[in-house]
């Protein structure tokens, strides 16, 4: 059963539904008050969160996908994630409508890619037939440019 399907935590950008693999999500926390991001950071950087004493950079997935910044809703939450096999790159991802989960078959094949989708996603269909854009964490600009960001956060 485990090998057959994966649990995806969903969030929304605009009308689209995106998914984060639960395997790489440590915890979902409310949209807590963040410290201001260090100077010179990309615009999708929303700030710095104190996660159990560890300062984590928090990136705005909406902004990263080119959409307007995520609003301060109750459903807007922060995913504490790290890329697969890179537990040291722990960071917060801010997203709207982070309230649900979806099961996706492990053997699910990507469907026709939507040009509007960000490059770091793959379009799939959930078990219940809902179109889902799965996020490849390691391809996120946050983790691609991890070192300067980490440095900036640590320095702040």
């Amino acid at each position: 059963m485990r090998q057959q399907r994966q649990l995806w935590l969903t969030f929304g950008i605009g009308e689209r539904l995106f998914g984060l693999c639960a395997e790489h999500v440590l915890e979902v926390i409310p949209f807590v008050t963040l410290r201001a991001p260090p100077a010179g950071m990309p615009d999708w950087m929303r700030g710095v969160a104190d996660y159990h004493g560890t300062l984590l950079p928090v990136a705005d997935l909406s902004r990263m996908a080119g959409a307007p910044p995520a609003c301060d809703f109750l459903s807007t939450r922060i995913f504490i994630v790290h890329p697969p096999d890179q537990p040291e790159k722990m960071a917060g991802l801010l997203a709207e409508r982070a309230t649900d989960t979806q099961w996706v078959a492990a053997k699910a094949r990507p469907v026709a890619t939507d040009n509007d989708l960000p490059a770091w996603t793959t379009s799939l269909t959930s078990d219940t037939g809902i179109p889902l854009a799965l996020v490849h964490l390691e391809q996120l600009p946050l983790f691609v440019d991890w070192n300067p960001i980490r440095k900036g956060v640590s320095g702040s």
Binding site: L7, A22, V28, T101
Partner: peptide, 30 residues
Amino acid sequence: ITKIADQTNLLSLNAAIEAEKAGEYGVGFS
């Protein structure tokens, strides 16, 4: 109520994550 529901939702999400990580043992709880 909304906050409670929100927190409940949050808890359930995290519970789902934990259940997912618990593997087969967490299936029921998930």
